[in-house]
Design a protein around this nucleic acid. Structure first.
Lengths: 233, 233
DNA sequence: CGAACAATTGATCCTCATCAAACCTTGTGG
DNA sequence: CCACAAGGTTTGATGAGGATCAATTGTTCG
């Protein structure tokens, strides 16, 4: 399989790259393909590469010493992950990256990226932009987790996941489909799968969503947003 | 009051700055002094400046629409805050920065920083390093909040706050003092002040800490670490 | 068709927030 | 120097929100 360098411009970090640089990334990078459930890297591995997801879908999970997991982020096509190693070459990944479906990612050596930084302002700016995005997102999620009750958190989580990895169910319909199990929604929302199941069942009764096996279809995002903001009774 | 440019080298972002740059920051920046409880900026303000705390102590808090607060970070001398604006000039602060005690901070215009980035690799690297630190810290705190129960979270919070803003109670003693109210510890741990009060009372009974009004002295950090990791009985 | 696994549903229990009231500490003014 | 006010802290009683557990019901796939 061959990667078209021009496609790399869809990556936000590479928006302002020169054509030469894009070719360099495409050439020096190696394409890694994964089956569903396989791992790009594990929490604790040395941060050897930065990844660009070329196709498929992935998730970043963090495990506690006791084995409990939370989903920190989901990755869609042309999004980057594992970028920490660019800045801290001798560090280890703080998360595990796992393919949600069959996927392919371009792996670029951290050392290469790091060597390019001093002469590429656009790369620095691009990396800092996604970093600040992650910081503000994590701060918000932390506050939610600390102050909001489960149902709202689940609603927000479903909406956020939908914006990150949701697909239109059909071109002409506004419904958005989310290919995630209850377990995964629970790990992203910080709830038990039972509570997630009950919340989804209730929303389905109200016609807000349609729930299936490893699948959620959002039929009324507006109502879901209301729920996430506390319009309840 | 005059700021010595050489002191700025204690700021991690400026570690590798030239002497000229340090002087530039000291000269172009304005020193803002705050009484206890005053605000450097509010959540929602435009990100006009990056700050370096020169003296005192501050906290970054985020408020929910309903007014509930969480403490995201505490700032000690020579630490930076409000650095997001450097990368996103037209954004607004996602947090509020408030002085915990009488403090002074050097305010450097975001625009100035941004203009310097393309020709200063050290600045880019320095900023990215603190950003990755924040990301990994927030990811861990999020996981803790999602998976761990209160007492452990409070223990971890007290330890983390101690490492960030703790002071030795005396040069020759290992005890670390933390000048925070129960309310503030609660907001940092994502707990109620009642639960915090009970936990501290219990630990004081065990000789792990010494609790006072707006004050906690850690006498046995090792034991506290054990509690935070779940050694309980 | 049956095995494996996801999801549901109900019953139970436990953690922790909430509320109320008392207590302690610090600072202020007479 | 004492009295009082203000605000931080403690403590107990209560209750609710969710987690946990167990059993059942789908759903998918070989």
């Amino acid at each position: 399989m061959k990667l078209n360098p021009a496609d790399l411009r869809r990556v936000s970090v590479f928006n302002d790259a020169t054509d030469d640089d894009l070719e360099l990334f495409a050439e020096k990078g190696t394409l890694r393909t994964m089956e569903e459930g396989e791992f790009f890297f594990f929490q604790g591995d040395p941060t050897s590469h930065m990844y660009v997801l070329v196709s498929g879908r992935a998730k970043l999970v963090q495990s506690s010493p006791t084995g409990q997991q939370v989903i920190l982020r989901t990755i869609n096509e042309w999004q980057t992950f594992g970028a920490l190693g660019v800045v801290r070459p001798n560090a280890t990944y703080p998360v595990t990256a796992q393919a949600l479906i069959a996927s392919a990612a371009l792996a670029i050596e951290s050392e290469l990226m790091k060597a390019m930084l001093p002469t590429r302002p656009y790369l620095n700016l691009g990396l800092m932009q996604i970093m600040t995005n992650h910081i503000t997102e994590m701060q918000e999620r932390f506050r939610e987790m600390a102050t909001e009750r489960v149902e709202r958190r689940i609603a927000r989580t479903v909406l956020r996941l939908a914006s990150q990895i949701g697909k239109r169910v059909a071109e002409d319909k506004p419904f958005v489909e989310l290919p995630l199990s209850r377990q995964e929604i629970a790990e992203a929302a910080g709830a038990s799968i039972f509570t997630v199941s009950r919340a989804l069942a209730e929303w389905e009764r109200q016609g807000v969503i349609e729930a299936g096996r490893e699948r959620v279809v959002i039929k009324n995002p507006h109502k879901l947003l209301q729920i996430s903001e506390g319009a309840e009774e």
